[in-house]
């Protein structure tokens, strides 16, 4: 008995402590970023002001007044939203076809889609920049960013949708066929309502990925279509001087997506752990 109770006391204290430590280690950079965003650039690098300083909103007012934060934010919203919509418009029918009319090639096609994610992005940087700038003349346009964001997320979108659709019993789709719905009706009236949780979490995840994307949005834009990633990049001084400013910009960039994720948490967890169907 004694051993058992000792054991439970131990595990009651030990494991939560481990969990909290890990959580704090992960959370610390974010905390530090938000914390620093309320310091002036000068204070941010002084050791004596590490924890005790006079908070200021200077960085934030400065950001909206001088760096045009809202334009970057709006670009982020536009590109992420449209890229997500297009990814779903292409992904839903693709996943539907593969889930309910599989052929011998279906598995290979899925693997091939995933394999495109294995190509290092840097490998196509030069052709992408060259073609879009000199040839297609779409460099630094919303159109380009939307297309790029859509394409790089499409494999994951299709994979996720495919797994959700696979969960739906084939007979329900067949009952729909007997009832005389066409393919579009099957998708609209049966598939999407049934896989709603899955479709929503796919859309959300795609949106988050688009929002956070930095490799291409930084390299394929200058001003017109520049997103928040570009804004952060632009404030990153190599000498490491403007920490307060950089922290404020970063906080303002990740803020909206964290809030969005927070509100959709339940949806996300439900969708990602399945069980949304039936």
């Amino acid at each position: 008995m004694a051993v058992v109770s000792q054991n439970t006391t131990f595990s009651k204290v030990f494991w939560p402590a481990v969990a909290w430590s890990v959580a704090i280690i992960f959370f610390f950079p974010i905390f530090w970023m938000v914390f620093t965003s309320f310091k002036t650039d000068a204070d941010a690098v002084k050791p004596e002001f590490l924890f005790f300083f006079t908070p200021t909103l200077e960085n934030y007012t400065n950001m909206t007044e001088n760096y045009d934060y809202w334009r970057f934010a709006i670009n982020s919203v536009i590109t992420a939203t449209f890229a997500t919509i297009f990814a779903l418009v292409v992904g839903v029918p693709a996943a539907y076809a593969m889930a309910f009319n599989p052929s011998r090639a279906t598995k290979d096609v899925l693997m091939w889609m995933l394999s495109t994610k294995m190509l290092p992005a840097a490998a196509v940087l030069y052709p992408m920049t060259f073609l879009t700038k000199n040839f297609l003349d779409i460099y630094d346009t919303h159109f380009l960013i939307i297309v790029v964001l859509c394409l790089i997320n499409l494999p994951i979108v299709i994979w996720m949708l495919f797994t959700y659709f696979k969960e739906i019993p084939k007979e329900i789709i067949e009952a729909g066929k007997m009832d005389g719905v066409d393919t579009w009706g099957e998708i609209k009236d049966i598939l999407i309502p049934l896989a709603w949780g899955g479709v929503a979490s796919t859309a959300l995840l795609c949106f988050i990925f688009c929002w956070n994307e930095a490799y291409w949005t930084v390299r394929l834009t200058t001003t017109e279509a520049a997103t928040l990633s570009k804004l952060i990049e632009g404030n990153r001084a190599p000498e490491g001087l403007f920490f307060g400013r950089l922290s404020a910009v970063s906080t303002a960039a990740v803020g909206p997506i964290v809030v969005l994720g927070w509100f959709c948490q339940k949806q996300l967890v439900q969708g990602l752990t399945f069980g949304a169907v039936k």
Partner: peptide, 8 residues
């Protein structure tokens, strides 16, 4: 259908 296949 054996599994009823109703629209849930």
């Amino acid at each position: 259908f054996q599994t009823y296949a109703l629209y849930p």
